[in-house]
Design a protein around this nucleic acid. Structure first.
Lengths: 201, 201
DNA sequence: CGAAGTATTGAGACGTCTCAAAATTAGTGG
DNA sequence: CCACTAATTTTGAGACGTCTCAATACTTCG
């Protein structure tokens, strides 16, 4: 999350993964900061590095030589990046590193499968509800959640238009499931987690 | 492909992968035949095995203990199945086996990412065109393609209804891109591959 | 405060879904 | 091989949901 991986401008962020102990690999993992809105890598660029969030999930790992999507930082974020060839070299000898990569990739696949279900069969309201539930870990103790993405980014992620996302949020507000801080809808207050959960069955 | 992996009845098949040399693993890979319509594994069942098509791609590999989808044989098919725990044991020591699993999983992820794009942004005509192009390897020398799945299965895969799939095929027929053998639309003749390709940009 | 970007809201167009009927195909037993 | 039935597919008409286009409101940042 917080990195937008898309075919063209703006699309689907990546899942959260478990903390991978890639540290076993003796590959110098450089930390790198990206500001909101900057491109981490571009479509068709050589896929020489793989990237890891602080949260632990990886992205940018390809079978082929080139990236197939563009990755853009949604918010200011720090990623670790490792040279792909060196990591592959380590993985060839250290099975635990390879297994670690496998687990993280399986986790990514799992998220993708869930997301396909969402894109194939859910209504706009259900999609937005599912999105908010995915954002749940970002909820502060006060019950306030600052949405990290613009309506457009959310819409791309959910396969909707930004207007439809906006309408869905307004609708959830009207249903008493959501509140807003101030008059804007950037800071969201979760009022009824139970009914929200019911929306994405 | 030819195995339907779904959350409930009927949904998305799996991608084609490269031939994985899992044979390195000294795990007895039993072959098993499934008839059209039979269930290979069920949702929430323990994920004790992983499965491999003759084509080479794997499915049923989970991080958790249970399967999250149902897999059903679309056509009569033979799969190799390996005990997960033994394979994991081998992968822990043999980095090349682990890398092989990683490559196949990355390939699955790649297909899933492409499919998300399709589900998120494409029209019914584009989806059906993309589906036919995915089926292209099944084309016989005579230019005839026997669709392996019912309209319902195609529809579930593409996030559409069976009626919409049927209409799209009729439409492609009307456009002169597709022909039919006999009066039915089970055996398809690809008349204009170029224009079909243009439809899924 | 003004300007640019972002979000909300409305109205109508468009595409897909739903429901229903008819046509075609597949399967079964005589 | 035929007749019959069940299953699948096609086609139609209308309902429904999302998109498109456009105007307004709000926020952010200079």
């Amino acid at each position: 999350m917080f990195v937008n991986v898309s075919a063209h401008p703006g699309s689907k962020p990546k899942p959260l993964g478990q903390l991978g102990e890639l540290s076993r690999a003796r590959v110098i993992p450089s930390e790198f900061k990206y500001n909101r809105g900057t491109e981490i890598f571009g479509e068709t660029e050589p896929a020489d590095y793989i990237y890891q969030h602080l949260a632990g999930d990886i992205f940018g790992l390809e079978n082929g030589a080139a990236h197939r999507f563009t990755a853009e930082a949604i918010v200011d974020t720090t990623v670790r990046l490792m040279k792909r060839c060196s990591l592959e070299h380590v993985a060839e000898t250290d099975a635990l590193v390879a297994l670690d990569l496998l687990n993280m990739t399986t986790s990514n696949l799992r998220h993708a499968e869930d997301h396909m279900l969402l894109l194939g069969r859910k209504t706009s309201l259900e999609r937005v509800a599912a999105f908010l539930r995915e954002m749940d870990p970002r909820l502060t103790a006060a019950g306030v959640m600052a949405l990290p993405m613009s309506r457009r980014d959310i819409a791309d992620y959910l396969g909707l238009t930004l207007e439809t996302v906006s309408r869905a949020l307004s609708h959830l507000h009207g249903m008493g499931i959501l509140g807003f801080l101030g008059q804007t809808q950037r800071q969201i207050v979760l009022l009824d987690r139970v009914r929200l959960a019911e929306l994405d069955l």
